[in-house]
């Protein structure tokens, strides 16, 4: 009896200890919160009937903590919190290529207190691939705003003498098989390689791996020939001289890689590839609440500090709201459908 008691004392003491110390460390954060509440007072709602939001909002993220989506969200959400004046909490629900989280999100009440990140093209490939038997689509979401738009990039190892320019690479790849990185079947990187194969007649063979790090290590180590990735992933190794980006797959040059041509300007046609992530709510949310959220996110995304932090990570902020965002996702969907035969669906 005495001994059990001792154990509990140890455990509770230990908890209090970290609770106490953690609190001390978190002190600066509390100050921020105070400032937030002051900011909230200043923004005290002029329209009286809109009490929304008056309790914490949960943002589901369909990928693990510390991943790209998660990090980007955690950079943005404090600014949203500041504007909305209620806590905005992140809950990670990884698994099923993102669909564990999205299925959960779609099953929540559309009361505006549970919203989540949606990622393209994983969202589309998840419901377009008939193997998965999913009866959901973009139309099951009410869209709040896009956040990040990361275009595709093609890179080789920095000391790969075979390819100085994108033309060298494509000429070679028309005649020979070249291995290309991919973050999985139906990932944006995979779709990008398929699009190039389809349009130009190259013979890139995708080597599917887990995550962008796998591909980067493969190309840097000289095991895989070509890196198909996103600008956000390729910029830093390009600047460090570990990789050489040959082209980007966007309508315009990337602000992070102004010297790198697009495939389009090199005359290979309109081959665009991107992964985008934004915030959505389950269908049926009150339009006024949706408006509150869209406004808050738009304002937070315009914050210069937020943009600077995102740019440091090599991520371009691209706010899109309302119909524009919907149209953007629909385009994405038809882009995936166009290459679906290449994936064997």
């Amino acid at each position: 009896m005495k001994k059990i008691f001792l154990l509990f004392i140890i455990l509770t003491l230990a908890t209090f200890m970290i609770a106490g110390c953690g609190g001390a460390v978190e002190e600066p954060k509390e100050n921020v919160q105070q400032e937030q509440s002051e900011a909230e007072k200043q923004e005290a709602t002029p329209s009286e009937d809109t009490s929304y939001p008056d309790k914490p909002i949960t943002v589901t993220i369909s990928y693990s903590a510390g991943g790209g989506t998660d990090t980007g969200a955690r950079i943005l959400l404090p600014y949203v919190e500041e504007i909305l004046g209620v806590p905005v909490n992140v809950v990670n629900r990884p698994g099923g290529g993102g669909w564990v989280g999205w299925t959960y999100l779609l099953n929540q009440e559309p009361d505006g207190y549970t919203i989540g990140y949606i990622n393209t093209p994983n969202l589309m490939t998840g419901y377009l691939n008939p193997e998965y038997n999913r009866d959901k689509s973009i139309d099951d979401f009410d869209l709040i705003s896009n956040h990040v738009l990361d275009y595709g990039a093609i890179a080789v190892k920095a000391d790969d003498d075979r390819f100085q320019t994108i033309d060298d690479l494509i000429e070679y790849a028309k005649k020979n098989d070249l291995t290309a990185t991919s973050t999985g079947v139906g990932s944006d990187d995979h779709i990008a390689a398929l699009k190039v194969n389809d349009e130009v007649g190259t013979k890139f063979v995708a080597v599917h791996g887990k995550g962008a790090a796998h591909g980067k290590a493969g190309v840097m180590g000289g095991h895989i020939d070509v890196l198909f990735a996103n600008v956000g992933e390729a910029t830093v190794p390009h600047k460090n001289g570990e990789l050489r980006v040959l082209a980007v797959m966007s309508p315009e040059r990337s602000e992070f890689l102004p010297d790198i041509p697009t495939l389009e300007e090199k005359g290979y046609g309109k081959i665009y590839s991107w992964s985008a992530r934004g915030i959505a709510a389950p269908k049926g949310i009150d339009p006024e609440k949706l408006q509150v959220l869209s406004d808050a996110f738009a304002k937070a995304m315009a914050n210069a500090e937020h943009i600077k932090k995102m740019n440091e990570m090599g991520l371009a902020v691209k706010p899109l709201i309302g119909d524009e965002y919907y149209q953007f996702l629909k385009d994405d969907e038809s882009g995936v459908k166009k290459v679906s035969h290449l994936m064997g669906w």
Partner: peptide
């Protein structure tokens, strides 16, 4: 077996 949670 059609369970999303098993996909990963």
């Amino acid at each position: 077996f059609g369970i999303s949670s098993l996909e990963s």
